[in-house]
Amino acid sequence: MTAAVVVWRLISLAVAVAFVGLWQVVANAKLVSPVFLPGPDRAWAALVRGFAGGELWAKLVGTLQHMALGWLLASVVGIALGALIGSSRAMRAYVAPTLEFLRPLPASAVIPVAIALFGLTEAMALCVIAFGSIWPLLLATIHGFAAVEPRLYEVARALGLSRAAVIFKIALPSASPDIVAGMRLSLTVALILSVVCEMLAGLDGLGHWVLLSARAFRSADLFAGVILLGAIGYLTAQGMTAAERYVLKWRGQGH
């Protein structure tokens, strides 16, 4: 990192701090009713209070759990199905168009159907989150498997590799950039659907917390929840970037 980058980063940080200051001034002057807009001081106090009482911790863990379970389920099923469909030309011809047709369907539209099947339960949330976040991953995996360099398959045949060996030694590594990109999109979808499911089903989590706070007009608690959700979105995206760099490190060399 050069000095110029550090300086610009600091300036950029100062600008962000200035915006928070502006927010404080607007809130203090009551330009916007405090019912809707608490100052950053009140939001921060609510955040500290929530964590001290343990309540926000429980909600944070709840949301992370919903998100992680749904995302992991989607990842396992999505990569397996994607590998199955993507590695066979016949499967691609018959199945892929149906999947492409289903892709633009808003995942939240299956929530009522899931509620009818499972009730307002954790199982419902898991199904909806997994269903919604499987699409980007599934289609990316299919694409990754379909785009494997055909000559690599010829090499595999010449070496007499088994089908499992072909998948794990050739197709999966070759498709890994697509798969990781799909997993990143899935993670975003999983967070959004976790919040929606918590709001609708009253499951323990930040989605429920922010909605309840809004209904009770406790705007400081509401903003504390929104800030936490933003932090989750930011940190998971950063984690994914780090994981992406780690997993795909080998591609940087000699390609």
Binding site: T188, A214, V226, L229, G233, A237
Partner: peptide, 12 residues
Amino acid sequence: IRPIPSVALLPI
């Protein structure tokens, strides 16, 4: 601001 999930703004 960007990573805030849009639905989180729903209550606001």
